[in-house]
Amino acid sequence: MTEALLVLALLAVAAQVQKKREQQQRVQLLGRCLQPYQIEQQMETLIDGYLRWLGEAEAGRAAQIRGMLASTEQALAAQFERFAADVAKIAAPQAQVSKLPLWMPWAQQLLPRRRLFDVREAFAIHARGIAEVAANARGLSGKAQARQMMAELLLMQHTCHWFCRSRAVADARLVLRHQTSWQQALDAASPATARDYRALLAGY
């Protein structure tokens, strides 16, 4: 009995060490892909700007804010397209992400394919969604476009956290930072993004 407990304890320690190693590798990998771009800063600029614009009562000032945001939308869409192309070069094992709520060490080796999704495909979906909303291909009103872009950005940020940490951590950060659940963000994103993302996570 003592030997069995010792073995279990050693396995638990090994799993924890491996978890930290894998997460650190993913944080560094994503950081290298993001490093050439200003995606995080542009995302913050847009979300803060949308909130100011939606709350601005003076029409002239609101129009000025919206004009500045439009150029940031276009810049972000262009940069994110290039970022997604960089992510597409990641090797297959590193690109696989567990659909389980909590981080599982050695998930790529141990889990069946249906329990994993490819983050390269996820970021390609986000790139298309951000570009579509930035171009306002569906002819949305200004406010509807802003809300849809915010949903696209929050969903993309959730994917980053899921890739680096876990689904549970990504869910918690989205709620704590933006008072929005993953399901709310997905429902508010463009129809194409919601459809493709649900297909990617089929069986979750």
Score class of each variant (00 low, 15 high):
75 A>F: 04
75 A>Y: 00
75 A>G: 10
76 L>W: 02
76 L>S: 02
77 A>Q: 07
77 A>L: 02
78 A>D: 11
79 Q>W: 04
80 F>P: 06
81 E>V: 07
81 E>R: 14
82 R>M: 12
83 F>I: 02
83 F>L: 09
83 F>T: 00
83 F>M: 01
84 A>E: 04
85 A>I: 03
85 A>H: 11
86 D>H: 00
86 D>N: 02
86 D>C: 07
87 V>D: 00
87 V>A: 00
88 A>T: 06
88 A>C: 06
90 I>M: 14
91 A>D: 13
91 A>G: 01
91 A>T: 12
92 A>T: 11
93 P>R: 05
94 Q>S: 14
94 Q>V: 08
95 A>N: 02
95 A>K: 08
95 A>S: 13
95 A>E: 04
97 V>W: 04
97 V>T: 12
98 S>N: 10
98 S>T: 15
98 S>F: 11
98 S>R: 07
99 K>H: 11
99 K>I: 07
100 L>M: 10
100 L>C: 02
101 P>I: 00
102 L>W: 13
102 L>S: 13
104 M>R: 14
104 M>D: 08
104 M>V: 15
105 P>V: 04
106 W>C: 11
106 W>S: 13
107 A>F: 06
107 A>K: 10
109 Q>I: 11
109 Q>K: 15
109 Q>M: 15
110 L>F: 13
110 L>D: 11
111 L>S: 04
111 L>M: 14
111 L>D: 07
112 P>M: 06
112 P>V: 07
112 P>T: 02
113 R>K: 15
113 R>G: 09
113 R>P: 06
113 R>E: 14
115 R>S: 09
116 L>M: 08
116 L>F: 01
116 L>P: 03
117 F>I: 03
117 F>R: 03
118 D>S: 09
118 D>P: 13
119 V>S: 12
119 V>N: 09
120 R>N: 01
121 E>R: 14
122 A>L: 05
123 F>V: 06
123 F>G: 01
123 F>W: 03
123 F>M: 04
124 A>H: 10
124 A>F: 03
124 A>Y: 07
124 A>P: 09
127 A>W: 03
128 R>N: 13
128 R>C: 12
129 G>Q: 05
129 G>V: 06
129 G>M: 05
129 G>S: 13
129 G>D: 10
131 A>Q: 12
131 A>S: 14
132 E>A: 15
133 V>K: 09
134 A>M: 06
135 A>L: 12
135 A>P: 12
136 N>I: 09
137 A>K: 07
139 G>P: 03
139 G>M: 09
140 L>M: 09
140 L>N: 05
141 S>V: 11
141 S>A: 15
142 G>C: 02
142 G>V: 03
143 K>T: 12
143 K>M: 09
143 K>G: 10
144 A>T: 08
144 A>W: 09
144 A>F: 08
145 Q>R: 15
145 Q>L: 12
145 Q>I: 05
146 A>W: 04
146 A>M: 05
147 R>W: 12
148 Q>L: 03
149 M>W: 01
151 A>K: 02
152 E>C: 08
152 E>R: 10
152 E>I: 12
155 L>F: 13
155 L>R: 08
156 M>Q: 11
157 Q>S: 14
157 Q>Y: 14
158 H>C: 00
160 C>S: 15
160 C>G: 13
161 H>K: 05
161 H>T: 08
162 W>M: 10
162 W>K: 09
162 W>H: 13
162 W>A: 07
162 W>P: 05
164 C>I: 08
164 C>N: 04
